[in-house]
Simulated assay, not measured.
Amino acid sequence: MLLAAEHAHWLSWVAWQEQHHGPALAWIDLAHGWAVDGGHTDMASWAQRVRSYYSLDHGDPVRALRTAEAARVVGMLPLSPAAEAVAVHQAAMAAAACAERDLAQRWADEAHTLALQAADEGERPGWLYWLNPTRATLQRADAAYACRAWADAVAGFRAALPALAGCPRDHAYYAGRLEDAERRA
Protein backbone atom coordinates (compact mmCIF):
# COMPACT_ATOMS: atom_id res chain seq x y z
CA MET A 1 0.00 0.00 0.00
CA LEU A 2 2.86 2.36 0.78
CA LEU A 3 4.47 1.79 -2.62
CA ALA A 4 1.12 2.40 -4.34
CA ALA A 5 0.66 5.61 -2.33
CA GLU A 6 4.18 6.79 -3.22
CA HIS A 7 3.55 6.21 -6.92
CA ALA A 8 0.15 7.90 -6.79
CA HIS A 9 1.75 10.88 -5.08
CA TRP A 10 4.38 11.09 -7.80
CA LEU A 11 1.75 10.91 -10.55
CA SER A 12 -0.20 13.62 -8.77
CA TRP A 13 2.85 15.86 -8.61
CA VAL A 14 3.61 15.38 -12.31
CA ALA A 15 -0.01 16.12 -13.24
CA TRP A 16 -0.01 19.29 -11.11
CA GLN A 17 3.22 20.51 -12.69
CA GLU A 18 1.64 19.97 -16.12
CA GLN A 19 -1.42 22.02 -15.06
CA HIS A 20 -3.72 18.97 -15.02
CA HIS A 21 -5.29 19.87 -11.69
CA GLY A 22 -8.23 17.43 -11.75
CA PRO A 23 -6.08 14.34 -12.28
CA ALA A 24 -3.54 15.67 -9.77
CA LEU A 25 -6.23 15.91 -7.09
CA ALA A 26 -7.57 12.46 -7.97
CA TRP A 27 -4.10 10.91 -7.69
CA ILE A 28 -3.32 12.61 -4.38
CA ASP A 29 -6.67 11.42 -3.00
CA LEU A 30 -5.78 7.88 -4.06
CA ALA A 31 -2.36 8.24 -2.43
CA HIS A 32 -3.98 9.39 0.79
CA GLY A 33 -6.52 6.58 0.75
CA TRP A 34 -3.91 3.90 0.13
CA ALA A 35 -1.71 5.33 2.87
CA VAL A 36 -4.61 5.29 5.34
CA ASP A 37 -5.67 1.78 4.28
CA GLY A 38 -2.11 0.56 4.76
CA GLY A 39 -1.67 2.25 8.14
CA HIS A 40 1.14 4.49 6.87
CA THR A 41 0.58 7.63 8.93
CA ASP A 42 3.57 9.54 7.59
CA MET A 43 2.48 9.03 3.97
CA ALA A 44 -1.12 9.95 4.81
CA SER A 45 0.16 13.15 6.36
CA TRP A 46 2.39 13.80 3.34
CA ALA A 47 -0.57 13.43 0.98
CA GLN A 48 -2.52 15.96 3.05
CA ARG A 49 0.48 18.28 3.00
CA VAL A 50 0.66 18.04 -0.79
CA ARG A 51 -3.06 18.77 -1.03
CA SER A 52 -2.47 21.84 1.13
CA TYR A 53 0.31 22.93 -1.20
CA TYR A 54 -2.06 22.57 -4.15
CA SER A 55 -4.67 24.71 -2.41
CA LEU A 56 -2.12 27.40 -1.65
CA ASP A 57 -0.74 27.27 -5.19
CA HIS A 58 -4.28 27.57 -6.53
CA GLY A 59 -4.96 30.69 -4.44
CA ASP A 60 -6.97 29.28 -1.54
CA PRO A 61 -4.84 29.95 1.57
CA VAL A 62 -7.64 29.29 4.06
CA ARG A 63 -8.24 25.79 2.70
CA ALA A 64 -4.47 25.29 2.53
CA LEU A 65 -4.17 26.20 6.21
CA ARG A 66 -6.97 23.87 7.32
CA THR A 67 -5.60 21.01 5.22
CA ALA A 68 -2.06 21.52 6.53
CA GLU A 69 -3.36 21.54 10.10
CA ALA A 70 -5.13 18.25 9.39
CA ALA A 71 -1.87 16.80 8.05
CA ARG A 72 -0.47 16.96 11.58
CA VAL A 73 -3.16 14.68 13.06
CA VAL A 74 -3.94 12.00 10.51
CA GLY A 75 -4.12 8.85 12.59
CA MET A 76 -3.68 7.08 15.85
CA LEU A 77 0.08 6.78 15.49
CA PRO A 78 2.32 9.82 15.97
CA LEU A 79 4.13 11.21 12.95
CA SER A 80 7.86 10.90 12.55
CA PRO A 81 9.68 14.19 13.21
CA ALA A 82 10.43 14.57 9.48
CA ALA A 83 6.82 14.03 8.38
CA GLU A 84 5.59 16.39 11.06
CA ALA A 85 8.22 18.96 10.03
CA VAL A 86 6.95 19.17 6.46
CA ALA A 87 3.32 19.33 7.62
CA VAL A 88 4.14 22.13 10.06
CA HIS A 89 6.16 23.98 7.42
CA GLN A 90 3.22 23.80 5.01
CA ALA A 91 0.95 25.14 7.75
CA ALA A 92 3.43 27.99 8.28
CA MET A 93 3.36 28.90 4.59
CA ALA A 94 -0.44 28.82 4.53
CA ALA A 95 -0.64 30.88 7.72
CA ALA A 96 1.65 33.48 6.16
CA ALA A 97 -0.63 33.64 3.11
CA CYS A 98 -3.56 34.23 5.49
CA ALA A 99 -1.64 37.15 7.07
CA GLU A 100 -1.14 35.16 10.29
CA ARG A 101 2.53 36.09 10.40
CA ASP A 102 3.22 35.49 14.10
CA LEU A 103 1.69 32.02 13.88
CA ALA A 104 3.57 31.34 10.64
CA GLN A 105 6.90 32.27 12.19
CA ARG A 106 6.26 30.12 15.28
CA TRP A 107 5.39 27.17 13.07
CA ALA A 108 8.43 27.78 10.86
CA ASP A 109 10.64 27.59 13.93
CA GLU A 110 8.85 24.42 15.07
CA ALA A 111 9.22 22.83 11.62
CA HIS A 112 12.93 23.64 11.60
CA THR A 113 13.42 22.08 15.04
CA LEU A 114 11.50 18.94 14.00
CA ALA A 115 13.47 18.61 10.76
CA LEU A 116 16.75 18.79 12.63
CA GLN A 117 15.60 15.86 14.79
CA ALA A 118 15.80 13.74 11.63
CA ALA A 119 19.05 15.08 10.24
CA ASP A 120 20.24 11.67 8.96
CA GLU A 121 18.57 10.30 5.85
CA GLY A 122 17.89 6.96 7.57
CA GLU A 123 15.71 8.76 10.12
CA ARG A 124 13.29 10.02 7.46
CA PRO A 125 10.68 8.31 5.28
CA GLY A 126 12.08 7.57 1.82
CA TRP A 127 10.14 10.30 0.04
CA LEU A 128 11.60 12.88 2.44
CA TYR A 129 15.18 12.08 1.41
CA TRP A 130 15.68 15.79 0.62
CA LEU A 131 14.83 17.15 4.10
CA ASN A 132 18.37 17.60 5.37
CA PRO A 133 19.52 20.46 7.63
CA THR A 134 20.22 22.68 4.61
CA ARG A 135 16.70 22.20 3.23
CA ALA A 136 15.25 22.76 6.71
CA THR A 137 17.08 26.10 6.86
CA LEU A 138 15.83 27.02 3.39
CA GLN A 139 12.25 26.19 4.40
CA ARG A 140 12.59 28.41 7.44
CA ALA A 141 13.95 31.21 5.23
CA ASP A 142 11.09 30.69 2.77
CA ALA A 143 8.60 31.09 5.62
CA ALA A 144 10.35 34.28 6.72
CA TYR A 145 10.14 35.49 3.12
CA ALA A 146 6.41 34.70 3.03
CA CYS A 147 6.00 36.64 6.29
CA ARG A 148 7.93 39.57 4.82
CA ALA A 149 10.57 39.22 7.52
CA TRP A 150 13.17 40.19 4.98
CA ALA A 151 16.24 40.25 7.23
CA ASP A 152 15.47 36.76 8.56
CA ALA A 153 14.90 35.50 5.04
CA VAL A 154 18.22 36.98 3.87
CA ALA A 155 20.10 35.41 6.78
CA GLY A 156 18.55 31.97 6.16
CA PHE A 157 19.12 31.99 2.42
CA ARG A 158 22.72 33.17 2.85
CA ALA A 159 23.44 30.47 5.43
CA ALA A 160 22.09 27.62 3.29
CA LEU A 161 22.82 28.67 -0.28
CA PRO A 162 26.49 27.55 -0.39
CA ALA A 163 25.40 23.96 0.33
CA LEU A 164 23.31 23.97 -2.87
CA ALA A 165 26.29 24.40 -5.19
CA GLY A 166 25.73 20.90 -6.59
CA CYS A 167 22.04 21.61 -7.33
CA PRO A 168 22.07 24.36 -9.98
CA ARG A 169 18.29 24.61 -10.41
CA ASP A 170 17.61 24.89 -6.67
CA HIS A 171 20.59 27.19 -6.21
CA ALA A 172 19.27 29.55 -8.88
CA TYR A 173 15.77 29.54 -7.36
CA TYR A 174 16.97 30.37 -3.84
CA ALA A 175 19.56 32.85 -5.11
CA GLY A 176 16.68 34.71 -6.77
CA ARG A 177 14.74 34.66 -3.50
CA LEU A 178 17.82 35.95 -1.68
CA GLU A 179 18.28 38.82 -4.16
CA ASP A 180 14.64 39.82 -3.84
CA ALA A 181 14.74 39.66 -0.03
CA GLU A 182 17.94 41.75 0.00
CA ARG A 183 16.25 44.43 -2.14
CA ARG A 184 13.29 44.53 0.25
CA ALA A 185 15.28 44.43 3.51
Rank of each mutant, 00 (worst) to 15 (best):
L2P: 00
A4C: 00
A5F: 04
H7W: 05
H9F: 09
S12T: 00
S12P: 00
W13C: 04
V14I: 14
W16V: 02
E18S: 15
G22A: 15
P23F: 13
A24K: 02
A24V: 02
A24N: 06
A26H: 10
I28G: 07
D29H: 06
H32I: 01
W34Y: 14
A35K: 10
V36T: 13
D37W: 12
G38S: 12
G38F: 10
D42L: 08
D42R: 05
A47F: 01
A47K: 05
Q48G: 09
R49S: 15
V50Y: 05
D60K: 12
V62R: 15
A68W: 00
A68T: 03
A68M: 02
E69Q: 14
E69S: 11
A70V: 01
A71V: 05
R72N: 04
R72L: 09
G75F: 10
M76F: 07
M76W: 06
M76N: 13
S80W: 07
E84T: 01
A85V: 03
Q90P: 08
A94I: 03
A95F: 02
A97H: 15
C98I: 06
R101P: 00
L103I: 10
A104Q: 02
R106P: 01
R106G: 03
A108M: 03
A111L: 07
A111M: 08
L114S: 01
A115M: 11
A115R: 07
A115F: 07
L116I: 04
A119Y: 02
G122A: 11
G122K: 04
E123P: 00
R124L: 08
G126N: 05
W127V: 12
Y129H: 13
W130C: 05
L131M: 03
N132A: 11
N132C: 09
P133M: 10
R135Y: 12
A136C: 05
T137S: 09
T137A: 09
L138F: 02
L138S: 04
L138P: 04
R140N: 06
D142A: 11
D142G: 11
D142M: 07
A143F: 07
W150R: 04
A151M: 06
A151V: 08
D152K: 05
A153L: 05
A153K: 04
A153D: 04
V154D: 02
G156D: 03
R158P: 00
R158N: 07
A159F: 04
L161A: 03
L161V: 03
P162S: 11
P162H: 08
A163M: 09
L164C: 10
G166C: 11
P168C: 10
P168A: 08
R169Q: 15
L178S: 12
E179F: 09
A181R: 10
R183D: 13
A185D: 12
